[in-house]
């Protein structure tokens, strides 16, 4: 039960659980934003587990999550576009969701990079971190563009 596993449990309870509750309750838009956040947090927990169990191969799970997470969120944008854009997003919700989705990534990836063996693994972790930040920020923005914004379908 080393520090990394304790950090993983803490991140699960403090971050993933609220995101999960956000997915299970409330309007569809907030559920999809919570799902985007949950995917990012799950990938970060995978990185912590890979360090906690000393298994570098767990980073592959974080990589797949970092690559597929935004796709899962964009599925809602594509198939529920009208419904999501009907209700206007409050700027506060947009900002907090963007910050929540992006802030924890460096907070987890950097310590893991420092602890992991230097060289290509650090590059891999940084790549996963960049994918997570880009995907999460993009999805939050795509989900919360106001109806008049660039969110016209299919163009």
């Amino acid at each position: 039960m080393n520090g990394w596993l304790a950090a993983a449990c803490a991140l699960l309870l403090v971050g993933f659980l609220p995101a999960l509750l956000g997915i299970c309750t409330g309007p569809v838009r907030r559920r999809v934003l919570a799902q985007n956040l949950a995917t990012v947090l799950a990938a970060l927990v995978m990185l912590l587990l890979s360090q906690g169990y000393a298994r570098p191969s767990y980073t592959d799970m974080a990589l797949v999550l970092a690559v597929l997470g935004p796709v899962g969120t964009l599925v809602y944008e594509r198939l529920l576009g009208e419904e999501l854009r009907a209700s206007r997003p409050r700027p506060l919700v947009t900002r907090t969701m963007t910050v929540l989705g992006v802030a924890p990534v460096p907070a987890v990836v950097l310590p893991v990079c420092v602890a992991a063996t230097p060289g290509r693994t650090t590059l891999k972790l940084l790549f996963i971190g960049c994918l997570l930040v880009a995907g999460s920020a993009l999805c939050t923005r795509a989900l919360t563009t106001p109806p008049g914004g660039g969110g016209s379908d299919g163009r």
């Binding site: 570098p56 990589l63 290509r120 590059l123 891999k124 790549f127």
Partner: peptide, 8 residues
Amino acid sequence: GLWLVLIQ
């Protein structure tokens, strides 16, 4: 390059 980064 990405492949080289990914493999052990």
